[in-house]
């Protein structure tokens, strides 16, 4: 058990990103992010069939400078993506992306050059079915969550299968359409067991340790992602509840975040040249009281711009800043736990 560090409150820092319907600066259904050692933040944009040509990884820094983008485009050729889900980076600067539609992992460098890819649909070793969450341990081992096979598979960065665990069900070590995955500093593996409404914790080789959360009020609903900070605190994107829950190292409830986005630097640029929108926005209450039939977290978030909407991934940078990636709002809200 991790030595408990007293829980401080998690505080909002800022929002980054902006929606766009073109390439370049801005996000299009961001699905995950990763952090390069040189300070670049990489944002994976999933897109859909309507906006397929915008599938890409955008790059920016903490100061919100736009630093370009790369991809091999949308499609079935080598290195191309159809429905990418998650991103991880190794210590050589190679970026790995899961594609749930093509059942494979592609590796590119940040100039967009094709490095390698592997995987095909199936349930044997090295095969995949609906690869979703992805996490990198010590820059060399990849953990891939397969929603279709209800398992976690380990790969070397060269694509060699190193083993797997899990099956369909709701018991320990069983999964129901799992999604995200995170690691702690000891190398334990945390899986967002999406349709079982829980987080499961395993050792690095798949021994079940614990499960946190359940269906129901105040619990988890369809968790999509999980990450663990240097003190062992867990951050869960509670996707079905449109919130983030923070648990202590033993799984005890610490705090729940509903979101409090503000204008990013790029959003402020937009407002500065569109005064009619800026002026009417300033008159508005963006956290309004809603009629009773708009009562689900999803519908409330659709009406309440500062709240999380589609929090698909949570990731921590090297300074333990929490990045909450919101697919439906095309932005990332950043938080940090005040220690002590």
């Amino acid at each position: 058990m991790t030595t408990a560090v007293a829980a401080g409150p998690v505080e909002y820092i800022k929002t980054i990103g902006l929606t766009t319907n073109q390439s370049g600066r801005g996000f299009t259904n961001p699905y995950d992010c990763a952090f390069a050692p040189d300070g670049r933040i990489l944002i994976l944009n999933r897109c859909d069939t309507v906006r397929a040509s915008l599938v890409r990884i955008g790059m920016m820094n903490w100061e919100e400078d736009y630093l370009g983008e790369f991809s091999r485009g949308y499609g079935r050729a080598d290195g191309q993506w159809i429905l990418p889900v998650a991103i991880a980076m190794d210590d050589q600067g190679v970026v790995y992306v899961t594609d749930e539609q093509q059942h494979r992992i592609t590796a590119l460098d940040t100039d967009g050059n094709f490095v390698r890819q592997w995987g095909e649909k199936g349930s044997g070793p090295g095969q995949m079915n609906g690869p979703a969450g992805l996490a990198m341990n010590a820059g060399e081992t990849l953990y891939v969550v397969e929603q279709g096979n209800n398992r976690v598979q380990r790969f070397s960065t060269s694509g060699e299968s190193l083993g797997m665990w899990g099956e369909s069900g709701d018991g320990p070590g069983q999964f129901n359409m799992p999604w995200g995955v995170g690691l702690d500093s000891a190398g334990n593996v945390y899986v967002a067991d999406w349709r079982n409404d829980r987080i499961q914790k395993f050792t690095g080789d798949g021994q079940f340790i614990a499960a946190y959360g359940a269906s129901g009020d105040g619990q988890l609903s369809r968790p999509s992602g999980v990450c663990v900070d240097s003190d062992g605190y867990m951050y869960v994107s509670d996707w079905g509840n449109e919130r983030v829950q923070i648990l202590d190292p033993d799984g005890g409830f610490i705090q729940s975040l509903r979101g409090q986005a503000t204008l990013s630097k790029w959003a402020q640029d937009f407002m500065s040249v569109n005064p009619d929108e800026r002026n009417t926005r300033e008159m508005s209450n963006l956290v309004p009281e809603l009629p009773p039939h708009l009562d689900t977290p999803y519908l409330i978030s659709s009406q309440t711009e500062p709240y999380f909407w589609g929090p698909v991934s949570v990731r921590l940078d090297s300074e333990d800043r929490l990045f909450v990636v919101e697919s439906n709002r095309h932005r990332i809200q950043v938080y940090q736990r005040r220690k002590g």
């Binding site: 902006l18 929606t19 569109n274 929108e277 009417t280 508005s284 932005r331």
Partner: peptide, 23 residues
């Protein structure tokens, strides 16, 4: 927020953070 929502509707605005639904 009728004034803001009508302005956004008339400009087909998805900015800054996509559509805001109506009540």
């Amino acid at each position: 927020n009728a004034e803001y929502m009508a302005t956004r509707a008339s400009r087909d605005s998805i900015w800054p953070y996509s559509r805001i639904a109506w009540h």
